[in-house]
């Protein structure tokens, strides 16, 4: 009996609970680019003062590890918490698995990601489209009811991988298609970001995915599931709390890689 009681004094391996802020990684690796988009910060606690200010982790000893090679990052001058690799011997390559790692309060915070292949066989259905200028409400109604032409971006996606698209107007002085809403964003380049999709086609519709005349750039990103998961977690509601997605061990946030292809199309006045 005595021997059976003794184990109770030593509890199971349940760690002691501590309310403490956790390290957060916000790091993106782009195929073909240098490593310069690594941000380290800390979560803020509700019961501490100034919790609306982001606390960055400065002077962290951060490494990107590829195979057995370790590349030490340094903090970018004037940008607290943002790190880069200043050497020229590290280029992000498709198919390689990278690990980020640093020590924080006695624990190794780390995450891994593999750079996905370029979107396969990406194609744009046509590189120009004619759109009428919309000046009156009746023209707008006619346009929305009758204009069905789309620009289709297609790619091969047998494995149902995640992709998303960024559509940007790259004119110096873009002119709105719909003059009725011209004042709203005058002079600004329209930009549309799709949510991650497992499809193999994305149809660009006028006034939805682009609403200005001129040259547009479409970037088709091939992303990992971890990014898609985090993206979807943005719908987290404070009244229905759950832990946001993270692929970081001993921390929070995201470390993920991308590859992309680019297309261009021009919107012309009919």
């Amino acid at each position: 009996m005595i021997t059976s009681i003794i184990p109770l004094t030593a509890c199971e391996d349940v760690p002691d609970y501590k309310v403490q802020s956790e390290p957060v990684i916000e790091a993106y690796l782009y195929e073909g680019d240098p490593v310069d988009d690594i941000i380290l910060k800390k979560s803020s606690l509700y019961n501490e003062e100034d919790n609306d200010q982001t606390t960055y982790l400065t002077n962290a000893n951060v490494h990107i590890i590829l195979d057995s090679e370790s590349y030490e990052l340094s903090m970018m001058p004037g940008e607290a918490g943002r790190y880069e690799y200043t050497g020229d011997d590290l280029t992000i390559k498709i198919g390689e698995t990278y690990r980020i790692e640093f020590e924080h309060e006695g624990e190794t915070v780390h995450a891994e990601t593999t750079i996905p292949p370029l979107p396969e066989n990406g194609n744009i259905s046509h590189d120009e489209i004619y759109i009428p200028l919309i000046d009156t409400p009746s023209e707008l109604r006619d346009f929305t009811e009758s204009f069905q032409e789309t620009i289709d971006i297609t790619w091969n996606n047998e494995n149902d991988d995640y992709h998303y698209l960024l559509i940007e107007n790259i004119e110096a002085n873009p002119e709105p298609i719909n003059q009725l809403e011209a004042l709203a964003g005058i002079g600004e380049n329209f930009e549309y970001v799709s949510s991650p999709t497992q499809s193999n086609i994305f149809s660009l519709r006028a006034t939805v995915h682009y609403n200005q005349f001129g040259l547009h750039r479409v970037t088709l990103f091939h992303v990992n599931e971890e990014y898609a998961q985090l993206y979807e977690t943005t719908s987290q509601d404070s009244r229905d709390l759950y832990e946001p997605f993270t692929n970081v061990k001993n921390g929070l946030g995201i470390f993920t890689g991308f590859s992309s292809v680019t297309f261009y199309f021009e919107v012309l006045k009919k």
Partner: peptide, 27 residues
């Protein structure tokens, strides 16, 4: 209990605020 929050800026430039939930049954 929820014990804190943090922000992440996604690729489209949007910054989202996430609530961090504390250790399971830690309190």
């Amino acid at each position: 209990a929820p014990d804190g929050e943090y922000t992440i800026t996604l690729l489209d430039g949007t910054t989202y605020e996430y609530v961090s939930v504390g250790d399971k049954n830690g309190l």
